[in-house]
């Protein structure tokens, strides 16, 4: 279980705020509640939360505007609550600076897992560990080596860069745009077929099946996510 954190919930529906408060409270977190964007921004500025859970459909402000405002002065992780079929909204939110999303309706287990990942990310990026383990997969960032179940896997440079990016954000959604910009450079931000080919090769080499993925999860039209299986089993963070 991750360290207790202060989490700001920005959501206009009171019942959703209530069960989020209960679920997060039972995981040991302190919660702050805001029923609108302005109130949320105020609390984010004055109470310094460790994480913001933000509903995109707010009555007083556009969710993206809230993210952009927060990003002006803070790197606090933002988890977006989005409705289904809102792929465009999700991408826009991610582009504005959100870190991940959960689609409504969601199970609290899923939400808590995302929260855990986002809180841990704060820690890992601070440590900047040379080796990242995700279940049976080990990625050594310094030596640029990869092994699965103890066996070394040969990767090209781009393939390694993609995997390293996913591993650094293990459990977290990485958008197409972010991966393309980081690995191939800003000029190739829309060349999704580069990414698709690299992911395909990665899956082949790591023994993962796109039709039944265990490692690299596809978020259709949005991005990829490196699955942390051990995480689920142990229920423990990094």
């Amino acid at each position: 279980m991750s360290a207790p954190a202060r989490i700001l919930i920005v959501e206009d529906e009171a019942p959703i705020r209530r069960f989020l408060t209960i679920a997060l409270g039972s995981a040991g977190h302190e919660t702050l509640e805001a029923d609108g964007g302005r109130k949320g921004l105020e609390l984010a500025a004055t109470r310094a939360p460790d994480l913001v859970i933000l509903d995109l459909g707010l009555p007083d402000m556009d969710g993206r505007a809230v993210i952009a405002a927060i990003r002006e002065w803070s790197r606090v992780p933002v988890l977006v609550l989005s409705v289904r079929d809102g792929e465009g909204d999700k991408i826009a939110a991610l582009d504005a600076g959100a870190d991940d999303y959960v689609t409504k309706p969601f199970a609290t287990g899923e939400l808590l897992a995302r929260v855990r990942v986002l809180l841990r990310k704060q820690a890992t990026s601070a440590e900047d560990a040379p080796e990242i383990a995700a279940g049976s997969l080990k990625v050594n960032l310094a030596a640029r080596t990869v092994s699965r179940d103890g066996r070394d896997v040969k990767l090209t440079r781009k393939e390694f860069d993609v995997l390293a990016l996913l591993a650094r954000h293990a459990g977290r959604l990485v958008s197409h745009k972010q991966m393309l910009t980081d690995v191939w450079g800003p000029a190739h931000a829309t060349d999704t077929h580069y990414l698709r080919i690299a992911i395909g090769h990665l899956r082949d080499k790591l023994g993962d099946d796109a039709a039944d993925p265990r490692l690299i999860i596809t978020e259709p039209g949005v991005g990829y996510r490196l699955q942390i299986i051990a995480d689920r089993v142990s229920g423990a963070g990094g």
């Binding site: 792929e87 465009g88 999704t192 077929h193 698709r196 395909g200 099946d209 796109a210 039709a211 039944d212 993925p213 999860i217 596809t218 978020e219 259709p220 039209g221």
Partner: peptide
């Protein structure tokens, strides 16, 4: 919103 999509990925999801 058409794009080049891999059926396997969709099936996986």
């Amino acid at each position: 919103r058409r794009m080049a999509a891999d059926l396997r990925e969709i099936v996986g999801r």
